[in-house]
Simulated assay, not measured.
Amino acid sequence: MQEFDLQDSIKGIWDKLGGWLDSLILNLPNFILASLVFILFIFIAKYVGKIFERITRKHIKEDSIRLMTVKVIKAIVILIGFFIALGLLNLDKLLTSVLAGAGVVGLAIGLALQGTLNNTFSGLILSFLPEIQIGDWVETNGFAGSVTEINLRNIVIKQSDNNYVIIPNSKIVEEPFKNFTRTARSRVFVNCGVGYESDLEMVRDLTIETIKDKFPQKGNEEVEFMYEAFGDSSINFVLRFWVDATKNRHLLIARNEAIIEIKKAYDAKGINIPFPIRTIDFTNKLSINRDT
């Protein structure tokens, strides 16, 4: 009885091995074709990666972002080849299981690295945006400075005090930012006031001519002078004019030069720029020797 069971077991094993061998022989052409397709897609991925790197080199200055983008593209192409190879092997169930498992794993990783992935995708977005590039002077999230680096996690800003600020990419994408470098010309604002005894029309004309001589305007640009209000000790006005400026420092320099020129012109014409004066009047006299 035991000998009979042993023979049946050996026969069952040989039948199973024979079935596998027959299946292998029958599926050998598909296996070879699937292998060739997968190898072909590996070469295609390398070729696509080189082309994409040449294209992105003109638009992405950061090597880390460019290399990561190329790797992602190559991985996507290889995955496509892998799925096609599984389809040629008639492994539909395995393909479905792989896709389902990849979805679950991807969801888990996405939830665990939500902040990191947000910054990573934001970094990819920033790398293609022409509105912000390395070397630009920007104001964002309460900081101002020159952009020195854009990577997959953050951007680095060098402030005017020579300190560096690291800001997550998601903050740049979600929050407004001002880029001084994107425009070659900017408008400068100067606020001042003159005494009530001044000839207002003469002050206006003198100020406009002084600024025009110092800062020539281009095209449709013009120096704008407008009185704003009757102040406590002066009649206040705002002055606006255009200058070449790609950094906040350029605006500060232009405002400084404008104030100097306006003060010189006012001194030459005897125009008063008053400042507030406070007069204290003691109406109650104190008596030291008072009759009791």
Rank of each mutant, 00 (worst) to 15 (best):
I32Q: 00
K58Y: 12
K214E: 15
L152W: 01
A229C: 02
A265S: 13
M226I: 12
I84H: 05
I65R: 02
K50M: 03
K71T: 06
F241D: 05
I155F: 06
L113N: 11
A75P: 00
L286F: 13
L124Y: 06
W14Y: 11
F225A: 10
G12H: 08
A184L: 07
T207I: 06
A254M: 01
K50F: 04
L152C: 09
R187C: 05
V98M: 14
F282R: 11
V98S: 07
A34N: 02
A268V: 02
D92H: 09
P168C: 09
R57G: 03
E62L: 02
N163I: 04
W242T: 08
R290N: 13
V105L: 15
R185A: 08
I259P: 00
A75E: 00
I39Y: 07
V104D: 06
V104G: 04
A100Q: 00
A245H: 05
R57I: 03
F41P: 06
I84C: 11
T183M: 05
I32L: 14
I13C: 06
G87L: 09
G19P: 11
R185V: 10
P168A: 08
Q114R: 11
G142D: 11
F180I: 04
D281E: 10
S127T: 06
L79W: 09
W20Y: 14
M202I: 03
Y164E: 15
V156K: 14
V72R: 01
W137T: 12
L200P: 05
I84S: 10
E174N: 14
F41Q: 03
E228Q: 12
F282G: 05
R187S: 13
L126I: 15
V37A: 09
V72Y: 06
S23Q: 08
A254K: 00
E149F: 04
V203M: 13
V147I: 15
A108V: 15
D15K: 09
E139R: 11
L6Q: 12
R290C: 04
W14F: 13
R153F: 09
L88W: 05
I273W: 00
R153C: 03
V37N: 02
M226W: 03
A85T: 12
I25V: 12
S234I: 02
I76H: 09
K212A: 03
D244M: 00
E53M: 04
D213S: 15
Y227Q: 07
A229S: 15
L239H: 02
D232Y: 00
L117S: 04
L239K: 01
I55R: 00
K171H: 13
E3R: 05
I84D: 10
T148E: 15
V190Y: 04
G115S: 12
Y47C: 03
M226C: 04
L21G: 11
F143A: 09
N179C: 09
T69D: 01
L26V: 01
R185M: 08
D22M: 07
A184Q: 10
A144F: 01
V190S: 06
A102Y: 04
V188E: 03
G231K: 10
T183L: 11
I42W: 10
I211S: 07
F230D: 13
I39R: 01
N154E: 12
D232G: 05
K16S: 11
L251Q: 04
I109T: 07
F121C: 07
A85K: 10
S122V: 02
G103Y: 03
N179I: 04
K16V: 05
S287E: 07
S160H: 03
